[in-house]
Simulated scan of single mutants.
Amino acid sequence: MSRKSLSLAVILLVVVAILIAAWSAQSNRIRAGSEAPNSPEAAPVKTVMERAYDLIGTAAQTYDVSGFATVFVDTADYQLTTKQQEGVAAILGAEAAQRAGYLTAMQAHYMSLGHGAKLLQSALAKAKAEGRELSAEEFQAIIKANHDQVPTLPSPVVAKTNLTYESIEIAGDRATVRYDDGAALQEAILLKIKGQWYIAGITPVWAHF
């Protein structure tokens, strides 16, 4: 066999190996679609995802984070940004910021939103009682008092988010979910702990809102 023929044979073998590896990986992936709700493996994962978004919708209106620990968990899978760590430290203390994962980051975020909403509502009520608009200086003071977070008023209704799943990949006690929540294509990491799935992190892949 000539050197050229040998090289072509090696290339062909490499291509075949890559195709086999890709097929094997694909065979272990649970594709979401019409069959996903009936899959005994994917169904519990989807249930936790949808429960999480229901709790987030409620928190956007009430700032109640008491249910977050039932769907989110702190692990090393989610690394907080410096800004997130500063926000957690301001709300929950430096010790909490050091060990924070996705659960703590979510709790601190909505607690901060609630704090800012109270400050804003109080300032608006005061300005209205005095027959004037809220000044830019007052608004900036609220931002500073709210740990440099822009305050917002609570959502008037609890929004229901419909999730469209692109893929669900389960490997033992770890699941990777790629889905669209209407605002962005997201990727979530879930871990099964004592038989229960928890979300260890959600990262946007592509925003389209």
Score class of each variant (00 low, 15 high):
residue 155 S to V: 02
residue 172 G to V: 10
residue 146 N to E: 04
residue 158 V to G: 12
residue 30 I to T: 15
residue 136 A to R: 14
residue 140 Q to G: 09
residue 32 A to I: 09
residue 147 H to R: 10
residue 25 A to D: 14
residue 163 L to P: 01
residue 151 P to M: 03
residue 205 V to E: 11
residue 143 I to Q: 13
residue 202 I to A: 02
residue 26 Q to C: 07
residue 199 I to S: 01
residue 114 G to M: 03
residue 192 K to R: 15
residue 101 G to S: 07
residue 39 S to C: 08
residue 156 P to Q: 05
residue 106 M to F: 00
residue 207 A to G: 08
residue 94 A to R: 15
residue 55 L to I: 09
residue 144 K to M: 04
residue 1 M to W: 15
residue 99 R to S: 14
residue 10 V to Y: 13
residue 68 F to S: 00
residue 132 R to W: 07
residue 120 L to H: 00
residue 67 G to E: 04
residue 75 T to C: 05
residue 49 M to C: 02
residue 58 T to R: 11
residue 205 V to K: 15
residue 84 Q to E: 14
residue 101 G to K: 08
residue 117 A to G: 11
residue 71 V to M: 04
residue 108 A to C: 03
residue 170 I to P: 04
residue 100 A to W: 05
residue 138 E to M: 00
residue 15 V to D: 03
residue 196 Q to C: 05
residue 25 A to I: 15
residue 149 Q to G: 02
residue 98 Q to N: 14
residue 179 Y to V: 02
residue 139 F to N: 04
residue 91 I to A: 02
residue 93 G to P: 09
residue 141 A to R: 05
residue 135 S to F: 06
residue 197 W to S: 10
residue 139 F to Q: 08
residue 27 S to G: 08
residue 186 Q to F: 07
residue 15 V to K: 08
residue 168 I to D: 00
residue 113 L to I: 04
residue 122 S to D: 13
residue 103 L to E: 01
residue 87 G to A: 09
residue 96 A to C: 07
residue 146 N to R: 10
residue 201 G to S: 08
residue 45 V to D: 12
residue 150 V to F: 08
residue 64 D to R: 06
residue 1 M to D: 13
residue 53 Y to T: 11
residue 79 Q to N: 09
residue 103 L to D: 00
residue 46 K to R: 13
residue 154 P to M: 02
residue 96 A to I: 08
residue 171 A to T: 13
residue 139 F to T: 03
residue 60 A to I: 12
residue 189 I to P: 01
residue 149 Q to V: 14
residue 172 G to D: 06
residue 8 L to F: 14
residue 176 T to Y: 08
residue 76 A to N: 12
residue 183 A to E: 05
residue 42 A to Y: 08
residue 171 A to G: 06
residue 142 I to Y: 07
residue 46 K to E: 09
residue 192 K to I: 13
residue 164 T to G: 12
residue 27 S to N: 09
residue 17 A to C: 09
residue 176 T to F: 06
residue 134 L to W: 11
